[in-house]
Amino acid sequence: MKKLILATALVAISFGATAQRYFSKTAHIKFFSHTSAEDIKADNYKSTIIIDQATGAVQVETLIKSFEFEKALMQEHFNENYLESDKYPKANFKGKGDFSKVNFAADGNYSVNVAGQMTMHGATKDVSAIATIKIAGGKIDGSTKFFVNPRDYNVQIPDVVKGQISEKIEVTVKATLQPLK
């Protein structure tokens, strides 16, 4: 019986050693803008994220056109007038996180500080956030939440709708990661 446990442990370690990079191509990025006049929400289920445990590097990339709004006209205006997705089709994040403390092979919960630079609408800004990594039964779920001010990314907001768009837009990222083979 002891040997069986040892063998299982070895198997677990060996898997842990082979996969040092974890990724998702269907990461969910949501943003939510709350003002007393209007709540605006959009979801994007086609984002790509990759983590390299050895170097601590994290990269995220998404197509602006993949954000879905409840109102089609709002989605058109988001692309056409605000984020100008024809000119700036993608947004991305490049940063580092302390992933060395995470044991991806065993169940557990971790909080990881991630910091780096986000590029959107042609502007690059420093962003930092605390990411949560939850490993349960071999499933790796990562999530994080941070705030973005559209002004930092040179997004032009006309005076008439200033009251409807928050200066503190909540961005949530959720992904189920799998090891990169």
């Binding site: 990079r21 990759i50 390299d52 170097t55 590097a57 990339e61 580092k96």
Partner: peptide, 10 residues
Amino acid sequence: SGDEDLLSLL
């Protein structure tokens, strides 16, 4: 380098 373009791996 740790700054390689990881996304290209996918």
